[in-house]
């Protein structure tokens, strides 16, 4: 399974929609897209995982590679619409403390509006 990435913007929040699998083979594309978003000074990032079937530690590593810059610029990376298996990967290592996960896109956007 390949990876497909789509970037859109709503109310100043960058939404990165991920489709497919994030593993050590596809992670370079995901990482490149995250860096592009951050280099364009977009620091409020909501990752929509509605069509993300699978994530390995490579994906977590890619997020860790940009989170410091994002936080230092007053932003945040949040996720929404995760499947139970994708959620478990974040949760089991305690990553849900750093990356808040919301049940829907609307709730993710609302969280940015309310808390930044």
């Amino acid at each position: 399974m390949d990876i497909k990435l789509n970037v859109s913007k709503e109310k100043g929040i960058t939404i990165l929609e991920v489709q497919g699998d994030i593993n050590a083979h596809t992670v370079n594309e995901f990482e490149k897209k995250l860096h592009q978003i951050v280099e364009n000074n977009n620091y409020k990032i909501l990752i929509d995982c509605k069509n993300l079937d699978y994530i390995s530690s490579a994906g977590l590593g890619a997020l860790m590679g940009v989170i410091e810059t994002v936080k230092n610029n007053g932003g945040d990376i949040k996720l929404c619409n995760t499947s139970p298996s994708v959620y478990r990967v974040f949760d089991i290592l305690g990553f849900t403390e750093l990356f808040k996960i919301y049940p829907s896109l609307e709730e993710g956007l609302k969280a940015f509006e309310e808390n930044g």
């Binding site: 530690s57 089991i92 290592l93 305690g94």
Partner: peptide
């Protein structure tokens, strides 16, 4: 220690951690 790990924004060794957990 995951609290320290996340605080320092580290990113290595996550694969082994998942193997141990699962």
């Amino acid at each position: 220690d995951m609290k320290e790990y996340l605080k320092k924004y580290q990113k290595g060794g996550l694969g082994i951690m998942l193997m141990i957990k699962f």
